[in-house]
Design a binder for these strands. Sequence first.
DNA 1: GAAATTCCTGCATAAAAACGCAGAAACCGG
DNA 2: CCGGTTTCTGCGTTTTTATGCAGGAATTTC
Lengths: 249, 249
Amino acid sequence: MLKKERQAYILHQVNLHNKVLSSSLCTEINVSEDTIRRDLQELADEGKIIKVHGGALSPSFNHVYFPSNGVYSQNQKKKIAQKAISLIGNGMFVLTSGGTTIIELARMLPHQLKATFISGSIPVILEYMHHPNIEVILIGDKISKNSKITVGSQAIAKIKEVKADICFLGTNAIDIEHGITDNDWEVVQLKKAMIESSKKVVCLSIAEKVNTVQPIRVCGLEDIDMLITELDPDNALMQAYVKAGLEVM
Amino acid sequence: MLKKERQAYILHQVNLHNKVLSSSLCTEINVSEDTIRRDLQELADEGKIIKVHGGALSPSFNHVYFPSNGVYSQNQKKKIAQKAISLIGNGMFVLTSGGTTIIELARMLPHQLKATFISGSIPVILEYMHHPNIEVILIGDKISKNSKITVGSQAIAKIKEVKADICFLGTNAIDIEHGITDNDWEVVQLKKAMIESSKKVVCLSIAEKVNTVQPIRVCGLEDIDMLITELDPDNALMQAYVKAGLEVM
DNA sequence: GAAATTCCTGCATAAAAACGCAGAAACCGG
DNA sequence: CCGGTTTCTGCGTTTTTATGCAGGAATTTC
């Protein structure tokens, strides 16, 4: 079989099945693995396939694209995410809600981190999927198109089965008196379950949302362990929360 | 044999078989390899063949295997999706696997359709989410980064709880003898569960994948009800499947 | 962490191509 | 018919290309 022929065959297979294994190719075509690898390399150089360990993938079915710009207060959120990430260690089970702050967190996870992330938020899961080393567990149930998150009794039941090391809550409103509050009943149910299922609860919030209130209560301050904002922990705005027993970062 | 004659013969062979080997040509015509090579060179210069190491290929060869459009065989897939959509009625529960064909289906769903769609494939769910009227149920579990689908025992258990009206399987390989086959063990487990949980199983496959085989078996032809390809139902390729008792569309 | 794959690099070998050359054949104008 | 010219073909030689193999590095997986 001619080299060009072989490459055409490979390309054909990749486009047909979205992936190929070098091992199966080399038995199919009956050449050495080296040859296959060289072919894959060439095709990859031409951009016709994407080479991965053990085989190759179709370039079309690979990246699910999600826009990143235009996020409100992105710099603050990055700062928050950075602090939050420092709390995650290898091997941990991490439960996260949805929201743009959590998406930033997902994007900034260091590549070598190995941990398990659990979430029901589609945009967040998309980010997790791009990460090379983490395990991703998706909470399933009915999807709320508004919040792009799975909601419902089954999702809650699933969360309750988990015992996570740490839980990051993207927060819509936090206040000394009313604790954490939100405006979507179903999302609140989920967050409650997440709080119950975690050893440590970390609340991520930009300073703007501190000392604001929303209609539905998630939990009181006593149920959360830590508050992260883009501000310094010794900022005046934070002192009331320190006094309330929260660790502020 | 004259030079022109020889070249005409070569050209004929190339067009007939899509390829020639210089070595076989030189024994057939009984001239030296150099002569053959010079002939091939001339023909290649005229653009009548494509010269490669060891022989030559038909110029049409390239176009067959190197599609220039973005997603592979998108038109065929749209045609398939169109046919599949005609099977979906208001109020139905629809179970779908992953794959680019299913994504096309998701994109083309009519806006006024009201039905419930269930899937564990992230890219497919993303498309469903854009639809104004359908309910979307996400199957949760561990995410396979390769196939961008939730896999695992919990996902399978969840699927088994469902009783769907119809199930659409994006198919990697289908064959009269071996039925539906695939190359990812976990995906196969899911598909098996989906087949069990559906009243009607519809297999979507582009014609290229018909009569091909992959290593792992999903089910036999007797387990599926319908086969949809981009071809007409009375196409010769389909007749064997009609005879096997499938409804072909 | 250890075992098993897979990958990469350099090397050896064989096949094919390129090159130059020379003899043979065809062509051609007288 | 003939010398000169052009074209074609085959033969060595050198270069390039294709492929497989052996090792050690890197990676995945358990």
